[in-house]
Computed example of a mutant assay.
Amino acid sequence: MRRKVAAVALVTGLLAACIIADPLPEQRSLPTRVPSIILTTPDVSRPLLEAPDGGFNVTLRLYNPAAGYRWRVFVDYDDGVNPNPVPGLNISEPGSSDLPDVQTVTFSLSRAAMDPERCHVIEFVVALVFGAFPHNGDPGADSVSWRYVPGGDYSKCAQYDASVPDARPLDAGMDGSDASP
């Protein structure tokens, strides 16, 4: 009888030990990660021969929809010549409750932003925040670019001719000072 009582006590003790659980860990917030580009329309792997009828669509994966995100569009970005985003295409967006982790951004370019008779590089940049320089998002910002070649005529694109000595772009001096020829 003592063995049965001891066995029952032992089993009861083991069950009680299994039932007593550690408290639940604190809920952690989602990590702060920059949205990533998962799909584009039109496809970026081919040059655009004409302006897309439906505009540009960029599908993003949001890792923390509550954080929101910012995006900018640049046409022919050049830090010293054309450093600013296209007016009206510098947007801050909240996450959506429909598909909180996937969002599609749609934009189009006006004739004022993009001359349809010239070649262009169109860039889309997404970030959580943008710093002092308009083109630079926070670390890990994601971007995509399209090449626009009207009608497939590459003669309308600026080209670098290495056979012309003064046609090469300027480079920084060896000590990082002003550009040297």
Score class of each variant (00 low, 15 high):
124 F>Q: 06
73 V>T: 09
169 P>D: 00
131 G>L: 05
27 Q>K: 09
95 G>H: 06
121 V>N: 05
133 F>C: 08
8 V>T: 07
28 R>K: 15
73 V>S: 08
18 C>G: 15
123 E>D: 04
134 P>M: 00
139 P>V: 11
87 P>M: 07
114 M>C: 03
21 A>E: 14
67 A>P: 04
20 I>Q: 12
167 A>S: 07
141 A>W: 09
39 L>S: 11
134 P>N: 05
172 A>W: 10
5 V>I: 14
181 P>V: 12
181 P>T: 10
115 D>Q: 02
162 A>E: 13
85 P>C: 08
67 A>K: 03
24 L>K: 14
73 V>C: 08
122 I>G: 02
109 L>H: 01
149 V>A: 11
106 T>R: 15
93 E>R: 04
65 P>H: 05
65 P>T: 00
105 V>D: 07
175 D>C: 07
14 L>T: 07
125 V>I: 00
54 G>A: 14
19 I>W: 15
42 P>V: 06
1 M>T: 01
175 D>V: 06
21 A>H: 14
4 K>T: 15
126 V>Y: 04
70 R>T: 06
6 A>N: 01
29 S>T: 13
99 L>W: 15
151 G>Y: 02
167 A>F: 02
75 V>G: 00
10 L>A: 15
66 A>V: 09
115 D>S: 08
152 G>D: 02
115 D>P: 02
41 T>S: 14
98 D>C: 13
15 L>Q: 04
74 F>D: 02
33 R>G: 01
129 V>N: 11
105 V>S: 05
16 A>D: 08
169 P>M: 00
100 P>V: 11
4 K>E: 15
62 L>N: 06
20 I>N: 10
35 P>A: 13
117 E>L: 09
120 H>V: 01
176 G>V: 01
9 A>D: 01
8 V>S: 00
172 A>F: 11
171 D>H: 11
175 D>Y: 09
125 V>E: 02
92 S>M: 08
107 F>I: 02
74 F>P: 02
162 A>I: 12
87 P>S: 10
34 V>D: 09
25 P>R: 13
111 R>Q: 13
107 F>A: 01
